[in-house]
Write a protein that binds this DNA or RNA. Structure first.
Lengths: 206, 206
DNA sequence: TTAGTTAGCAAGTGAACACTAACTAAATTG
DNA sequence: CAATTTAGTTAGTGTTCACTTGCTAACTAA
């Protein structure tokens, strides 16, 4: 009558359901009951796989971490020029947010900020890693002269990570109309142009 | 025996307590019970003043709106030069966040995003107003030649509001070490320098 | 002084939550 | 094919929540 799945399959199924619910009803309204309904189990069935809710969240963070890191690795591997790497990193991040819209709200969930220090640390490390990748690429770009040297790579990375977060907020509050990645691509280009050394076309002929 | 306060006084007292609690325990953990304890009332006493929790939140949004708008007005009035106005606007905003650290988390609270559309709209308007003030000042700055004209005022405003939000996130996740306004002042200067027209000192002599 | 208003209370209600206990039946393994 | 393991169940516990009911006592105005 009832198909039983392997624990491994169920776990990933549950994690997916959590991300879906975290988006649809909010991270702190994601209850065991709702997860159970979406995967077709009884409510206590969830706790068969994750003894506590916090463990469930950590599994979610783990999966997100894997996905983000993969995206970064691809962005880095696929681009020789460091400026192209910077842009690819940001587009990858925006793409992940678009595909997993719960991401920003998890970052501000009560679960992360108040109840689950491990979850908080997991996301903190992810953000730091992203910042690190960006700063590294920006440093290289600067070394080879494609970025002005009156801005530190760290500061430039702050501008760009902030841009990602700011865009995500605008996109979220604005009912998610339009493409996040398209708008992001345009604005990254503008910001990179601001950080580019003086171009001949822009240089005033004195 | 028990001092009774006027409803008006109590209301502002309650709103203040909410902001305090929203910071200390998180917006979605701010319960009527805790509010009652901090103002020294019984739990149902809260509902004497605010029939529903959502009404309480709207009162909070109202007070925040007043405070933010005042800050913007002062920043605009106190600065003749539009670039100075831009910086003052941002520092005002960062100051408000530092003084009311619950602000960013309210922006991502379940209450705002899921339960209370009016609250969501109230904050949406505030963000739009801030963006508008910034864009206006940037447009003026551009008109008088103190901002490059290869970036639109709207895009520039997005960069700067994003910077505010990005800094707030970093500050929040980083356990709020250091001064948000100081770091913000430094980075605004850097970004404004990026957006400044070519300076003689930076212009390469061809 | 007295009548009306209103800020407060104690007690309770029903719903939702995370999680437990005790059991069952499907899958796996010897 | 039996023995064991394990993914699932139903039923329930204690807690917390927003909010209600019905009352009292403190202010206020005639």
């Amino acid at each position: 009558m009832l198909r039983r799945k392997s624990a491994e399959d169920r776990k990933t199924e549950i994690v997916t359901a959590v991300l879906d619910l975290a988006d649809r009803v909010g991270p702190d309204r994601m209850t065991a009951r709702k997860v159970a309904e979406t995967v077709g189990l009884s409510q206590p069935g969830i706790f068969r796989h994750f003894a506590r809710k916090s463990a469930l969240w950590l599994a979610v963070a783990d999966q997100i971490g894997v996905r983000l890191s993969q995206g970064w690795a691809e962005a880095i591997a696929a681009n020789d020029r460091p400026e192209a790497r910077v842009k690819a990193l940001i587009l990858s991040q925006l793409g992940q947010i678009e595909a997993t819209p719960a991401l920003p709200s998890i970052l501000f969930s009560r679960e992360l900020n108040m109840d689950n220090p491990d979850l908080r640390e997991a996301f903190g490390s992810l953000l730091a890693a992203f910042h690190g990748h960006l700063a590294a690429a920006l440093g290289e770009a600067q070394a080879q002269g494609s970025v002005r040297n009156d801005v530190s790579p760290g500061d430039a990375a702050v501008f760009l990570t902030s841009l990602v977060q700011g865009l995500a907020i605008r996109w979220s509050l604005g009912a998610r109309k339009g493409s996040l990645t398209e708008e992001g691509a345009r604005l990254v280009d503008v910001q990179m142009a601001l950080m580019a050394p003086d171009l001949p076309t822009e240089r005033k002929r004195t």
